[in-house]
Structure formats: C-alpha cells, structure tokens
C-alpha cells in the first residue's frame, strides 16, 4: 500500500469535502448524459406514437433472446462493479481486482454478444440500406394495418443509433475500468482513497440504466413468439 501518495488535494478542506465534490461532479456529468439520451428517447417516443404498428412489427423481429441475455450480463456487471466499491472500502485488494476484472469480462461479453446480434440482424435483412427487403414487410400476419417499409427502417435506424451510442459508452467505461485495474495493482485504491472506484461505478451503473430502458423500448415493444415450453395465458387486447 502506498502511503506517500497525497490523498487530499490542497484545494480541499478535508477528505469528506473532496469525496462530496467528486461524486457531485460525476452526477453533473450524468445529468448531461441524461439529456443526450433523453433527446434520442424523446425523438423515439414521437415516432413510436406516430407509427405504432410499424414500430411494433420491427421490434417483434429483433433478437429478444440476445437482448435479454445481455440485460442479465449487464446487471451482473453492475453487481460486480458495486462489489468493487465495497471491496475498496473494506480494503480487500484481491476481491477488488477480481471484481474489476469480472466487470471488464462481463462488459466484453455484452459487446461480443452485441456484435453477434448485429451480424444476425444483417443476415435477417434488418439493416436499412445495407441489407433490407421492403417486400417482406408489406404483408405480416397479425398486423391489422399495412406496415410501411420506410417506417420500419426508421425504427431500425433508432435501434442502431441507440444501441450504438450505448455500446460506445460501454467501450469508454471499459477503458476507465482498465485504468482502475492499473491503479488497484499499484495499491492506490484504499479505504481512504476509494472515490475513483465509486465515481467510475456511478458512470457504469448509469450506462446500465440506459440499457434497462433500451430493452423494453427496442426489443419488447412488439409481441414476441413465445418459446413452446412457456405457458402463456390467453390475454388479448
């Protein structure tokens, strides 16, 4: 453990004030992030209200299995991130390293599955302009009004922009986590100086929250075909 490292910066009164400031700074940054994603979510809401059937039809074609598994992967990474904060504060260096590496591993799993999913989307002709078949959208069973291919493409563009921006945030977060691993190995993350883990944790959890809303908005907005082993009560709206 390094003790000659100055923990308290000279412009702070005490450690408590320094910690408050670090957390507050991250929350302010997250507020701007809320507005970045909020603008896209608002845009999505407007078109979702305008073209409900097209959006539901496109959503029903997205890969809900990979989407759900990725949700669980991301929630698990949030758990290991939260445990990293705990490990730092109780001074368990080995647990801290394990949890940080697990978080990075789960983040990489998420991105890997995302790549597989994008490739599946490409094979299923769900990529506007690059791979898209307008004819298959004009006749869909179970949809009352005819679906218009260009509106389906609009929904898919939302899907790529929202998941793409989210993935970019994941990559940034993984970079920050790698920095934390280096800091932890140098013994610089201690019960006194734990705020780097706490603050990067805040960012990581925020990215998780964005995904929590992407799952219902993109994947679960349409009715999906249930797996045969799952009992489904006959509800109709």
């Amino acid at each position: 453990m390094s003790t000659n490292h100055a923990v308290l910066a000279h412009h702070f009164e005490n450690l408590e004030q320094q910690r408050e400031t670090a957390a507050f700074g991250m929350w302010i940054f997250l507020a701007t992030e809320v507005l970045i994603f909020g603008a896209i979510f608002t845009c999505y809401a407007i078109y979702r209200l305008r073209y409900p059937l097209d959006f539901e039809a496109a959503s029903a074609r997205l890969n809900v299995l990979i989407g759900s598994i990725n949700t669980i992967v991301l929630l698990s990474s949030s758990l290991t991130m939260a445990l990293s904060v705990h490990a730092t504060r109780v001074g368990r260096q080995q647990m801290l390293l394990t949890c940080l590496l697990l978080t990075i591993l789960l983040g990489a799993t998420f991105l890997g599955l995302k790549v597989v999913e994008y490739y599946q989307d490409y094979k299923e002709k769900l990529v506007p302009v690059l791979a898209f078949d307008p004819d298959e959208w004009t006749q869909i069973e179970g949809v009352e009004a005819p679906v218009q291919p260009q509106r389906v493409q609009l929904m898919l563009v939302f899907y790529y922009i929202m998941t793409g921006l989210h993935a970019a945030h994941m990559i940034v977060g993984m970079g920050l986590l790698i920095w934390l691993v280096i800091e932890a190995r140098r013994g610089l993350l201690t019960p006194v100086r734990y705020m780097p883990v706490e603050v990067i944790g805040l960012y990581w959890h925020f990215v998780d929250i964005v995904w929590i809303f992407l799952l219902p908005l993109l994947y679960l907005t349409g009715t999906h075909q249930a797996p045969p082993w799952l009992p489904i009560p006959p509800i109709h709206f």
Binding site: F213, P216, F237
Partner: peptide
C-alpha cells in the same frame, strides 16, 4: 428482467411499451 421479458410474450398489443417502461 424475467418478468418484463415474459410480459413481451403476452398479447398486449400497444401496451407493451407502457408495461416495459414502468418495470
């Protein structure tokens, strides 16, 4: 998460988004 995915298999029509966002 399991609840919200299960709900997406029900025939809720336009209510999927509402239920999903609430969860």
């Amino acid at each position: 998460t399991l609840v919200t995915v299960y709900v997406s298999f029900l025939e809720l029509g336009p209510w999927h988004t509402t239920v999903g966002v609430l969860i």
